[in-house]
Design a protein around this nucleic acid. Structure first.
Lengths: 145, 145
DNA sequence: CCGCATCCAAAATGATACTG
DNA sequence: CAGTATCATTTTGGATGCGG
């Protein structure tokens, strides 16, 4: 993606030209299988231990979880807090950069809560992010105003 | 993910219990390789023809593109507008549901524009979404207020 | 040229067992 | 507990062809 221009003029054109697409570059980091779900565990569910994440994500094998954690650490999104050596115990935490994936997780959550309410909520009623996490939105308002 | 509660109380707890995780269910749809980039092409770049998308995404083969387009159509995110039969020409467009992935794409873009400015912008300066797409934000303000 | 389909190779992921 | 090692399976990529 060299340019974000469209032949028709009714579309989004960025004010500055991209050398590479920001979406593409981000998806290279976050787009692999399990990556966003691992981040969900650490960022939202507070599952920050190896086997906690495994239990919360059936199908995710230790091999792949190790790969994903290494990649995320390498990318600077998470860091390992060593609680104890031998037998090693680590706790995974978001970095400042990792914290900035929260809006991504929240927009994904909002999409699900709107379009898959039938599976998600007992009463099958779609919900907005504001309804689900009032506190999260108050925090955002405090920051942006 | 049965519960979105954490042992510590400093974390996000949804106001309503989830039967399944909204993030998980959404990622089941959007999380496969190339899917979000195909949506980026249709939603933002206005590349809505088969070979347009192919040209814009080197490495994506016709086989996988066909698969992804079928999956997205099946999921109700895109629909085919038949321009001409025999030889068949179709244009892919977002449905109403598909339009709701825009916030996801935009949050991904915002993350990239903040943390990968070095590769993205000639001047290496991070940018906010508001700076990149002023018109998109004006539209959002009009809607929410 | 456009929208695929087919065949095979390579890469990513899964299952299971095992170790410090 | 937090991973490795090994091997099987699934998913994706590359090349090519084909009817319209």
């Amino acid at each position: 993606m060299q340019k974000c221009r469209s032949p028709k003029d009714n579309l989004l054109v960025p004010s500055t030209k991209f050398r590479v697409c920001p979406i593409h570059i981000t998806i290279d980091i976050l787009g692999k299988k399990w990556t966003l779900l691992v981040l969900r565990d650490i960022a939202i569910l507070n599952n920050n231990r190896f086997n906690q994440i495994r239990r919360s994500l059936p199908g995710l094998t230790p091999r792949v979880l190790t790969l994903r954690l290494k990649e995320l650490e390498e990318a600077g999104l998470i860091r390992a807090i060593v609680i104890r050596e031998s037998p090693r115990v680590v706790e995974w935490a978001l970095t400042e950069k990792g914290n900035d994936i929260m809006p991504i997780l929240m927009s994904i959550l909002a999409f699900g809560a709107k379009w898959y309410a039938d599976e998600i909520f007992e009463d099958h009623r779609p919900r907005t992010l504001e309804e689900i996490y009032p506190s999260y939105h108050e925090a955002k308002d405090r920051i942006s105003s």
